[in-house]
Structure formats: C-alpha cells, structure tokens
Design a protein around this nucleic acid. Structure first.
Lengths: 214, 214
DNA sequence: TAGATTGTTAATCGATTAACAATC
DNA sequence: TAGATTGTTAATCGATTAACAATC
C-alpha cells in the first residue's frame, strides 16, 4: 500500500480515463494489454502509463503485460470504496435537475440523499425521488446524516455564503458548478470544479484563433 | 499582435478566470490593479500573472500597474470576437436541455442555431425557441448554415459515429459532453471536454483518500 | 528623485519521456 | 535461451517562480 497522498493531480485525473478504456476492453473480452497498446488507444505514451500505474505499486507482470480484469478492479477500487459517498445537492434549477438525474442514473460511488433550494415554489416538490427541502433545513439534515459531498448548483454569491457552513458541517468534497473559487479559500477541502462558462470561453478563444490562422 | 498559436494551453485556460475577476472588479468600481493584488485574489503568483499577460504583449504600465477596464476589454476581445460562433446542439436529453438553456441565457460568444436528436417523439417539439430536428437533417442544415461549433450531448457511440461527418461539414470546435475522445482522433480540431463522470471519479478518489489519512 | 511595479530573462520545479536492467 | 515487457532510474521538456533591469 503506497503513500497515496503523494500521487500528483495529473495522475489522479488520468485514472478515470484508464478505468473507462479498461471497462471497454473487459466488455470486448480482451484479457491482456501492454502499456504500449493502452497508450496507443488513449493517445499517450507507454512510459506514462507505466509511471502512472507504478504510483500505486504497479499492477503488471514483467515480460507479460497487464491483466485487463485485474487492472480494472485495482483502479476501480482506487476510485470507489465499498461505501458510496453520501451526497447532497444544493440548487435545483435546470442544471441541478440535470445533474441530480445524472448522479442517480449514470454514476457509481455516490448516493444522493437530499436536495435543497431557496425558491419557495419548488420546496416540497419531488426530484429524483427526493422531496426538495428549504435551505434552512440544511444544518439539521447534515447533523443527523453527515453527508460527505455537496454538489453546488447555485450562483456564485450563494456558494460563497454557504461554503463556511458546509465545511463546518463536515463536508469533505465539493462538486462545484458555481463560479465561486472554493479551492482558494478552503485549501484542505477537495474541490472538483466544473466551470461551464470558463470551458466555453477557452473553446471560443481557440476556435477564434484557428480562424485567424487560416 | 503576437503569435497566438504559441500560447500554451495552461495560459489559455486561465484567461476566463482573469476575465471573471476583472468583470467583478469593474462592477465594484475598481479602476487599477497590480499583478500582485490580482494574484492574491486569484490564488496564484504575481510572476504568473505578468507572464500570462505578456503572452499577448503585456497590458500594463511599468511602475503603475494594470488598468482594470483596459485589461478586461483586452482579455474579452481575446476570448470573444464580434461575430458569435454559430453553434448546434446534438442530443436533447436532460443534459442537452440544461446545456441549451445555459448557452442561451448565461453565455456570450455563442449563438445556438439548431438542435438535433434521434428520438422520434421529441422531433418537432420546441427547445429554447428552436424546433428539434431529426439528425438526418444535419447535413443539409450544415451545408446551408455553416455552423462553427457542435455541442455533443449524446452517448459515446453516437459521438463516434457523428464525428467524421461533423468534421467534414466544417465544424471547427466541439463542446464535448460524451465520453468519446475526439481529441485523440482529430488532432486539428478544437475540443473542450466536459467529462462529468471523470470529474466525479477523481473527486471520489480524493475524498476517499482523505478519509484514509485521518 | 525615490518608490512602485511592470516586462523579461534566468532559475527552479515538476511532469513527461527515454533508457535500461530486471524478469517473466 | 530469446523475446517481450515491466518497473525504475535518468534525461528532457515545459511550466512556474524568482530576480532584476527598465520605466513610469
């Protein structure tokens, strides 16, 4: 068991991609794969593949390669634990709704427990089998259920207001769709940002500069 | 005017964040900012801020700092051009719906022209003022409207099937929500991936390893 | 002029890639 | 044994940070 705290973020970010391609191979019935073959499929180098796996002790056999099933299981158990992460959703607008059904249907490792909002007219309505609660009930809920992860689908200012409370209530990870930069203010908390606006802007920069060239 | 083709991806990815913080300062009525102040707010270093801006020629004045308005305008004109990018949406499921209203309401630089799907029962229905069309009409539509960007909210296999056609029809940029790795197969096309599943997996890895430590 | 702060060059750091000994 | 392919160390590359001369 290696010191996983030392694994660098670029490596961690590649794990899901390995996992996806290994799932695919498994489905196709492929039982063995070499670092160079995996690299070719994923658009990287064999060196990087081996370096990455060796952050976790190395899952291969010299002269032979990697067993797809074993590798899939090993990476899977790095990404997911037996207990799924207790998760709450904050903000049930268009994006919140889409995300909640994504979490419920297309995802492993997370269990969506509750959804909160401020809009009076949505409180009490159903969302993915949950009754949307008023944000005022957040503290009480967290104290009795101890969620691990909060999904923030609220505007920047609401996120900023809620963050200290959520951290204090024991939230350890944020899936952050707001433009509030949690990671700057709470360095010890795990934050995964999905900044759709930023993503669009950097795409438009690149597409526009492409046109300039031609 | 510098050779923007040389600007590295990490720099490009930081531009939207600068832009956001500058918008905020502008709103607050702040007119001047130094690289060190901007760095402090954004959680980076003054060196990086200056290096980044100097990729585009440098927007500051020695001894004085940066004028917020000017900097905001300059970065804005890097990110957006006069003409917004003609955009089509492919896949109008939960995610596609959320994304289309995001594009229509919260975004600059993009103009959503049309939406396509395969599900017979949604064809002809309305989405953000557009009539959802059958994917069979894609070619014809592109030939007459020449869209720049395609938003892919479809499953992996559909994305893989559609990609060559879309590239051939002149699509220059993809906002890719599918798990198909476009960038590997089409190195000359601009791809911005939003892999929600990957994002969740890397968060769960980090939250889980946090628990291990404590 | 003195203080401040940029633009830019140099140093450092970390991540990726290459090389090769170990070993199946 | 010979060929293949890993695990691991070394070399390279690129990005970040530090330093400092230029200049407002």
């Amino acid at each position: 068991m290696p010191a996983q705290g030392k694994v660098s973020l670029p490596v961690i970010k590649r794990l899901p991609k390995y996992y996806r391609y290994l799932s695919e191979m498994k489905q196709k019935g492929i039982t063995k794969v070499s670092s160079s073959e995996l690299a070719r499929i994923m658009g990287t180098t064999a060196s990087q593949v081996r370096q990455d796996f060796n952050c976790f002790g190395g899952f291969g056999q010299q002269g032979i390669g990697y067993e797809v099933n074993r590798l899939h299981t090993e990476i899977g158990s790095l990404l997911f634990k037996e207990d799924s992460l207790k998760t709450i959703l904050i903000g049930t607008g268009r994006l919140g709704k889409a995300i909640s059904s994504y979490l419920n249907n297309d995802t492993r490792g997370y269990r969506l427990l509750a959804a909160f909002d401020v809009q009076e007219d949505v409180i009490g309505t159903q969302l993915c089998g949950m009754t949307i609660q008023h944000i005022d009930q957040l503290k009480e809920f967290c104290k009795s259920h101890n969620p691990d992860v909060a999904v923030l689908c609220v505007p920047k200012l609401s996120a900023k207001e809620l963050a200290p409370t959520l951290v204090e209530l024991g939230i350890k990870g944020f899936w952050n769709f707001s433009h509030y930069d949690l990671a700057v203010e709470y360095p010890n908390i795990m934050v995964e940002n999905v900044h759709l606006g930023d993503s669009l802007m950097s795409l438009s920069y690149r597409v526009n500069s492409l046109e300039h060239q031609q």
